[in-house]
């Protein structure tokens, strides 16, 4: 009964001769939480950039809900139902917190110049809906991002709250899959434990499917159904957390090969 949402076939990308990703195969089923791990420079962020359309693969295919995403612009990918966050938080720092989540609903709304100039009833209704949905996704994080905060610029937020706002912004695009790029980076253990629970709630209460890149193994262990390990642009292991963490290839990728002979 599992419903395959996203399938990635033989995906490769090269940057001027350098293979950032090589023959990558990957899939996500509906309702799964999949973690992508791997040492620095393994191509994890490139992988996300490729799914979200910011980088075009050299070869291979990305199939989402039965249709290829290749050649789509990032906004079209988002409209198709894949939202993402960024590793180095990239909020619209000078827009208010509410505006950040309002603007993310752009591809789900239709009103144009005419509606706003003549203040049509449908325009006002849509604006109200955008606002309500925005407040709803912000409310997911408790009281941190709502109330008086709504009209403050995103730049005054603390680092952890910026990460939360980025997730809220991704949620606001009404996606099917959310790609989280190191969601707990820079958070203290208590905060990251709370966020780990929230990631679980993203699936159970909101019905999102989640792919996350993470370095924090506690988070990976607690939330993932499945873990995929990348190294040098290739998948080197795949499976449950326990399988993967005991795989010799993975240990080698992280710790290096024991020196057998002197050169």
């Amino acid at each position: 009964m599992t419903n395959r949402l996203l399938t990635i076939k033989n995906l490769s990308v090269t940057f001027g001769g350098l293979h950032a990703l090589r023959d990558l195969n990957f899939h996500v089923d509906e309702g799964e939480i999949v973690s992508v791990i791997g040492p620095n420079g393994a191509g994890k962020t490139t992988f996300f950039n490729m799914i979200s359309g910011m980088v075009t693969p050299t070869s291979g295919d990305i199939i989402f809900k039965g249709e290829s995403l290749l050649g789509l612009d990032p906004n079209q990918v988002t409209a198709a139902g894949i939202a993402r966050t960024f590793q180095n938080v990239r909020l619209f720092a000078n827009m208010t917190i509410l505006e950040n989540v309002m603007v993310a609903q752009h591809c789900r709304t239709r009103q144009g110049i005419g509606g706003s100039l003549f203040q049509t009833r449908s325009f006002k209704r849509e604006e109200r809906e955008i606002r309500e949905h925005g407040e709803k996704v912000l409310g997911f994080f408790g009281s941190r991002l709502v109330g008086y905060r709504l009209d403050q610029p995103a730049s005054v937020l603390s680092y952890a709250n910026r990460r939360r706002l980025e997730i809220a912004r991704a949620m606001a695009t009404k996606p099917t899959i959310i790609l989280l790029d190191e969601p707990v980076a820079g958070m203290n253990p208590k905060e990251s434990a709370i966020l780990t629970d929230l990631i679980g709630e993203l699936r159970s209460d909101w019905g999102f499917t989640i792919v996350l890149i993470e370095h924090d193994m506690n988070v990976v262990r607690d939330v993932s159904d499945r873990v995929v390990v990348l190294d040098h642009g290739e998948t080197i292991a795949q499976g449950s957390y326990d399988d993967v963490s005991n795989s010799p290839e993975v240990i080698e990728a992280y710790l290096g090969r024991p020196v057998k002979e002197t050169a």
């Binding site: 950039n49 910011m54 980088v55 075009t56 693969p57 290749l70």
Partner: peptide, 17 residues
């Protein structure tokens, strides 16, 4: 460092208006 975004490679983009 993440690789630069917006590197367009050979694959054809879908045509817009």
């Amino acid at each position: 460092m993440p690789p630069p975004v917006h590197v367009k490679s050979q694959t054809v983009r879908r045509r817009t208006g």
